[in-house]
């Protein structure tokens, strides 16, 4: 469904994405993780024809990605990292404009607007101008809008930033149910528990390169299942071990205080993406 082959993108001579190759199959829930500036947004922007790569091949839904190719665009939905709603239109007008851009029928539009307002709990704000909504409400409208036309592939760039815990869980449930129905999803997030909960596969980006790719379980396998956190010189040092015994053995010979626990995806993430800086 999503194919990137040796894709490169430069901004002012520095590479934001370097030789990125990635295949996401139909029905997969792929999480793109990485620290700030790793190139996640740039990757999603290239996949949605918002920015052009300097080199490489990009295909979505079997079509080459280009700005004037309307065929693949019908099948994708995008929740961008920054809000891009029409601030001076109401919530419903924003959704209707989207429906018109996707050539939806009047009835279909009405039905979807109703469903999505219900889902986001924004019925009361249906006729409020978008610039009078709170940040979280705007983000909900953004998600609702991306779903209006029932896309086959969803790109979600940090979709749950600024949402309260209830809304976040609701959004999780929704996108998980979409994925169960066969929709391919590519998600970026800084919430590791979100990625661990949702994604069937995770790619770790660092400085524009894919440094690791696998299921959450595989990533932990590679980095170690047990963590020893050592508090040393006012810093926390992480060490990952494949088994409890090895972790204990290491902990015994430490002078500083430490703790041992099961590794989370966050530990793996910190370990893998932070390696060079800490070395």
């Amino acid at each position: 469904m999503i194919i990137l082959e040796n894709v490169t993108k430069y901004y002012h001579q520095t590479a934001s994405v370097q030789g990125l190759s990635l295949h996401v199959k139909q029905g997969e829930f792929f999480g793109l993780l990485g620290p700030n500036g790793a190139g996640k947004t740039t990757t999603i922007r290239m996949l949605t024809a918002l920015t052009m790569p300097a080199g490489g091949k990009i295909q979505v839904c079997g079509y080459p990605v280009s700005r004037n190719n309307t065929r693949f665009k019908n099948d994708i939905g995008v929740v961008p990292q920054h809000l891009n709603l029409e601030p001076e239109l109401t919530v419903v007008e924003n959704l209707r404009l989207h429906a018109m851009l996707y050539d939806m029928t009047r009835q279909e539009t009405k039905r979807r607007v109703g469903e999505l307002l219900d889902f986001t709990g924004l019925e009361e704000k249906a006729d409020a101008l978008v610039n009078t909504l709170s940040g979280g409400m705007k983000r909900k409208v953004l998600i609702a809008r991306a779903l209006m036309h029932n896309p086959k592939v969803l790109f979600l760039d940090e979709p749950t930033v600024g949402l309260d815990v209830f809304s976040r869980r609701k959004v999780w449930d929704l996108i998980r149910s979409l994925n169960v129905r066969g929709i391919t999803i590519m998600l970026t997030t800084h919430y590791l528990e979100e990625a661990e909960n949702l994604c069937s596969r995770i790619g770790l980006l660092k400085k524009g390169k894919l440094i690791m790719d696998g299921t959450p379980g595989e990533l932990k396998q590679l980095a170690g299942h047990v963590v020893v956190e050592q508090f040393k010189d006012e810093r926390t040092e992480l060490r990952l071990f494949p088994s409890q015994q090895e972790a204990l053995k290491f902990a015994e010979q430490l002078q500083d205080s430490c703790s041992i626990r099961q590794a989370t995806l966050e530990d793996v993430f910190v370990k893998l993406t932070g390696e060079r800086e800490n070395a």
């Binding site: 918002l50 700005r67 665009k73 961008p80 920054h82 891009n84 029409e86 989207h98 851009l101 996707y102």
Partner: peptide, 10 residues
């Protein structure tokens, strides 16, 4: 950034 909504649309 509403320009992007039009560029992403079919």
């Amino acid at each position: 950034h509403t320009f992007e909504e039009y560029m992403v649309a079919p």
